[in-house]
Design a protein around this nucleic acid. Structure first.
Length: 699
RNA sequence: GCCGGGAUAGCUCAGUGGUAGAGCAGCUCACUCGUAAUGAGCAGGCCGCGGGUUCAAGUCCCGCUCCCGGCUCCA
């Protein structure tokens, strides 16, 4: 039986094809008919909005879009195909290897294998060689739809226990098996037409990873790599990696003498050297100033407290794993604080509070200690002792919206001061259906995001009914939903208040919040703000968290206008996060090249010869009187060497003084990074002018 | 914590079971210099820590500490 089907293309053009009813027509054929160039550039196709392989066929009227290499949607296809090719290479080199999973990830892909430990870092080169052979062989990717039991048998015969496990978890009755050359793998697809299309790939490193991320499962070897449609894009990416390595805060921290972490002190404990401490002091001053201006009160609290405090707060029961063992003093047990909140609560509770004095906002640069497993520590980013820029807001329900709004504004204002321009904001919601999530995602998108990744049928679009929040909670978090503190009404009120604030403050700035469903802490929903640094990497900084738990545990209340006690709302918030992590971010964001207001030394004065030293010190004195951080380089080095060293120290300005300057009472200014091959940026001017300019730049 | 890799001078790093090395930094001396490294000399080491194998260990083996890449978690 033959029939004619209509194919609607992306540009609206409709083509008709007459096909054999049972066989349909291959997408690659359609593509080829449209044009040779399109065919060569096509990685995959989208049929009725669903991605599929070019080797797939269609049998009915459809809308078809071809995904070419330059389309961002092609990237994951490349990477996923690269993962399969990598697996093929590894299986060739290490027979008996059992396959785990091999997905595309943000900047590349990985594949997990059980090679019985044979795959190590020094084998990467060999695997790459093998991949090259596979690419050159240009095997085509093809797939077969198999019934689950047949597929199960197949992978059993292949001795692939992980694949068997995966198939058993798939709800559909059939699965797809992709083949290129002698290699076959369970996969949802789609893939490139053939292995030869993979032009730019690179294996990056090997690491251990638990099967399904669960430490009770066996440890597999994970091979990370990346892939791009062209070599050029790959090279750009690798360059970016190099740049990131250059900016590594651990490296710059050592080079610029900012901080150290030493074996004798212990892992995850930071020693701030003078220059680092100075930058921290500048940030702290700015932070305190901003908080005082915005109605916060500063408080200070101790590092240890009796264990009873932590029992009252619940940390003893629920946070014990992250706390250090008690310290015994005069037969009483004290604990190092992992958080500041209980102390702030105690200050609040020292007297009866009237609604007239709300909101109460207590802010503290509070140093806390948390036990972190040794393997997770990382420079300044993940440590065991750190100082949070913490605050707690105690307010009435009516004040919540205003308070939230000012928190979000404060966070963005502070972060922008440090030249962060892009933000990723997410709202983490709890177990009750509030309307908050509609803010970030349309129901269909939600569908794709949540169901699409886990279920084939939803991807095919067979479930089009509107999905509800409750569906998601029930389906994905069946046990977790009972672990939450607080009343349903509180949750909904808090989430909807937050949504209102995000709508008012964040959306107009062109930032679309993410909704992290069920991402809330057990005690309340939260907003997190991540910054994107100069290289586009994301760092968690601000967090604003509701707490329905502590006000109950500590019986926090206020006296309302009706003369009765009312339950207080409490908000935890940190804007920069911790000074340690934030400092690490700043170092990487600025590549160690701190802006004038943060630079530990702002001006280096370079006398050309010894006879200019007096004049140099005179200038330094005057700069210091104007609160400008200046140093004289009075070493017996050549001027050129001093300039070089000042450049390497990344000091924003140099003042070079010699006979001419001394005679004319001027200063010769060289701005950092004014390379000798560029136009000379240095100008002679009076010191007063220079000071005025700096002050303008600093204000 | 687990898997893999690593630790040699202040820093960056060579080092094949047989006398511990370089460059930079440091110190001393000379040079007093015009926009990214002046030259010479000197000094600098529990080769991460502890055991073992060996005539002999920085090198081989075992244990520990710390670091790096991940897994998991988070400020």
């Amino acid at each position: 039986m033959q029939k004619t089907i209509k194919i609607t293309l992306k540009d609206g053009k409709i083509i008709e094809e007459t096909i054999e009813d049972r066989e349909g027509i291959k997408l690659s054929l359609i593509c080829q008919k449209i044009g040779k160039r399109l065919f060569e550039a096509a990685a995959a196709a989208k049929v009725n909005g669903r991605l599929t392989d070019l080797s797939d066929s269609i049998k009915e009227d459809s809308s078809v879009e071809f995904i070419t290499y330059d389309n961002p949607e092609a990237l994951p296809i490349f990477r996923h195909s690269a993962a399969h090719i990598t697996a093929q290479a590894v299986k060739r080199l290490f027979p008996g290897t059992k396959l785990g999973i091999g997905p595309a990830i943000e900047n590349g892909f990985y594949y997990d294998f059980d090679t019985q430990g044979r795959l190590t870092q020094d084998q990467i080169g060999k695997v790459e060689e093998e991949i090259k052979k596979i690419v050159e062989a240009d095997y085509s990717f093809s797939f077969k739809e198999e019934r689950k039991d047949a597929a199960l048998q197949y992978f059993k015969d292949q001795n692939e226990p992980f694949k068997e496990e995966l198939i058993k978890e798939i709800p559909e009755s059939s699965v797809k098996i992709y083949t290129q050359g002698e290699f076959s793998d369970l996969c949802r697809g789609p893939h490139l037409p053939s292995t030869g299309k993979l032009k730019g790939f690179k294996l990056l490193n090997v690491a251990g990873a638990y099967w399904k991320g669960n430490e009770k499962n066996p440890m597999l070897q994970r091979l990370y790599g990346t892939a791009f449609p062209t070599k050029k894009e790959l090279e750009e990416y690798l360059k970016n990696l190099e740049e990131a390595a250059k900016r590594d805060h651990r490296k710059l921290g050592k080079e610029l003498d900012l901080f150290s972490i030493q074996e004798l002190t212990g892992p995850g404990l930071i020693l701030w050297h003078p220059k680092g401490a100075l930058i921290r002091k500048i940030v702290e001053d700015y932070w305190r100033e901003e908080h005082l201006n915005r109605g916060y009160d500063l408080v200070c609290t101790p590092h240890i407290a009796r264990v009873d405090l932590w029992k009252t707060s619940g940390h003893w029961d629920f946070y014990k794993e992250n706390m250090y063992r008690p310290i015994e003093v005069e037969e009483q047990e004290f604990m190092l604080k992992p958080m500041n909140c209980p102390f702030h609560i105690l200050i609040y509770k020292t007297k009866r509070r009237s609604y007239r004095e709300l909101p109460v906002r207590y802010a503290e640069l509070g140093t806390v200690y948390r036990y972190e497993r040794s393997g997770v520590l990382h420079g300044l980013m993940r440590v065991r002792g750190f100082t949070q820029d913490d605050a707690h807001i105690f307010c009435s329900p009516e004040q919540l919206e205003t308070e939230m709004e000012s928190c979000v504004r404060l966070a963005l204002d502070l972060l922008r001061r440090f030249d962060f321009r892009e933000f990723v904001i997410s709202l983490s919601t709890g177990p009750y259906p509030s309307k908050a999530w509609e803010l970030g995602l349309k129901p269909e998108e939600l569908h794709q995001k949540l169901i699409g990744e886990t279920s084939e049928s939803a991807r095919k679009g067979s479930v089009h009914r509107a999905i509800t929040y409750q569906d998601i909670v029930d389906r994905f978090y069946p046990e977790k939903k009972n672990e939450f503190a607080g009343e349903k009404e509180e949750w909904i009120y808090a989430e909807e208040t937050t949504a209102k604030v995000l709508e008012k403050v964040v959306l107009p700035q062109g930032i679309k919040p993410n909704i992290d469903i069920m991402g809330a802490a057990f005690y309340g929903p939260k907003i997190d703000i991540k910054v994107k640094d100069a290289l586009g990497r994301e760092w968690q900084c601000s967090t604003i968290q509701f707490d329905f738990n502590l006000p109950r545990r500590f019986d926090l209340n206020y006296i309302g206008p009706d003369g009765k006690e009312h339950r207080l709302y409490m908000v935890h918030r940190a804007m920069l996060g911790s000074f340690e992590r934030f400092f690490g971010c700043l170092i990487e964001h600025y590549a160690g090249d701190f802006p004038l207001w943060l630079a530990p030394a702002q001006v280096k004065i370079i006398p050309i010869a010894e006879r200019h030293h007096d004049y140099a010190y005179q200038i330094a004195k005057e700069l210091k009187q104007n609160r400008i951080r200046a140093e004289v380089d009075d070493r017996g080095e050549k001027m050129q060497a001093k300039i070089r060293d000042a450049e390497l120290e990344k000091i924003p300005y140099m003042i070079i003084v010699g006979d001419e300057e001394e005679k004319n009472k001027t200063v010769n200014i060289r701005k950092r990074k004014a390379q000798s091959d560029s136009k000379p940026l240095q100008t002679a001017q009076s010191l007063q002018e220079f000071i005025r300019d700096l002050k303008t730049a600093l204000s």
